[in-house]
Structure formats: structure tokens, C-alpha cells
Nucleic acid binder design. Sequence first.
DNA 1: AAAACCTTGACACGTCGATGGTAATGTTGA
DNA 2: TCAACATTACCATCGACGTGTCAAGGTTTT
Lengths: 116, 116
Amino acid sequence: METLTIHEAAATSGWSSRMLRYIERTGLLVPPRTASGYRVYGPGELQRLRTLRELLARFDLGLSDVALAARLEHDRELRDAVHGWLHSQPRRPEHVSAEDWLRFEQEKHERLLAAA
Amino acid sequence: METLTIHEAAATSGWSSRMLRYIERTGLLVPPRTASGYRVYGPGELQRLRTLRELLARFDLGLSDVALAARLEHDRELRDAVHGWLHSQPRRPEHVSAEDWLRFEQEKHERLLAAA
DNA sequence: AAAACCTTGACACGTCGATGGTAATGTTGA
DNA sequence: TCAACATTACCATCGACGTGTCAAGGTTTT
């Protein structure tokens, strides 16, 4: 099991060393350190760095989005509050863009008012 | 059941009319429209606008955060992907700030290396 | 028909997320 | 010991988010 330095990890993960440090600050992936403070990236870290890249690209997310998801995962109070608010919403058809929904609602009410 | 115009809704919800339109664009709260296109805010919308304000203030969230939470709620694929990535993470003690965790990890590895 | 609303679209600005670079300093290994 | 690499801290950029304001044009109300 080899361990990589930050630049080696950067080269093989697709991130820059600058971003590896930034990712650490977000709390999303905090590699261990040597006694003298050097970051140490093992196979596990490498794997997660690669999948993180794919995750962001695939769903067009930012690091802050994943950070929020993490926050939602381990903060039950926050999760419940947000969940509660979302479900106090009037049901709007799923998988419909805001724009389509807007047109839909508009037409629905036009129909309602036209019928009056 | 009275219905309010956007400015009235703004005045009684704590948002500005500008923000009410912006919130609509995010898809978080899309009020119905009159036949001529005027937004119509009812008691339900008013209530949700107020609780939305409290939610953001209480947890220091942005509208984009709640929008992401909504996306996570109704996009199972996204939710599973993010959830999966987060759980591929090495377990880090809950309710610990990134900074504290950093120090903890550092000290842990210093201890390990010192013992070697 | 005029006043007082509403609508969309545009310009503007501060903050923050995401990135890169550089400087000053400590660590490692030949 | 010297070259190569690491660390933190700071400066800079660029786009997105959050917000205000204003203009040009419909709608409602009196």
C-alpha cells in the first residue's frame, strides 16, 4: 500500500494540489498527516477523489453542494427542518422544470378564471 | 380567503417583491397567476414565505441550499449517488468541525508515528 | 383616461465559491 | 548541504448568488 504526496495525488486524481487543500478545508476529504505535517493520500483517498470528480461532473454539482448534503446527513435537526418546509409545499408534479411548472400553473388558473 | 398582490405579500412576509420573484425562479415557491399574469399569494404562500425566512436564518442557509435539498428529495439517482459517496468516506466523528478534525487527525498520526 | 398597480428585462454591486499563483518557511533525501 | 518538495498565508480572478433599482409596457380601478 503506497502512500502519495499531495502533488502525486493531484496528478493521479485529476485535481490540482491547490484544490486538494481546498477540498480538505471544506471537510469533504481530510487526508491524514505525517508527523511533520505532510498530507498523506492512500488508495482510499485516491478513489474517493476520483469518484468525487465524477459525481460533480455528472450532476453538475459544486463542492459546496456536496458539503451541504453532508451537513444534511449528519444534522438531523437541519434535515427535519428543511424536509418539513419542502413538504409544507403544495404538491407540484415531480420531474418538471420550474419554467414548465410556471406555464402549467398559469394555464391552469387561466382555465379556472375563464370558466368563472 | 383573501389573495394578496406581490407587494402586499412582500410587506407581510418580510421579503422584498424582488426576492419574491427571485424565489419563484429558483422553483422554491411558485405562486399561481391571474389570467393577466399577476402573481397571486394566498395564506398558504404567505405562511411558507415566513417559515422559509426562519429556516434560512436559523441554519444560515441560502436559497440555493434549500433548492439543492429539494433536488435531493425528488431526484433519487442524485440522492443515491451523493449518499453513496459520503458513505464511502472513512468515518469521522460526528458534530466535529473540519478544523477540530484536522487537529485530531494530525495528532493521531503524530502519536502513531511517534510510537513507531 | 389617469393613477396606481403589475410584468419582464437589464444594469449594478457586494459576497462567496472555486481556482491559480507566489512568497516565506520547514522537511526530506541524495 | 543542497535540490526538490511540503506547508501556510496572502493576492487575484471569474462566475454565481442575493439584492436593489430603473425602464418600457400591460392591467385595474376610480
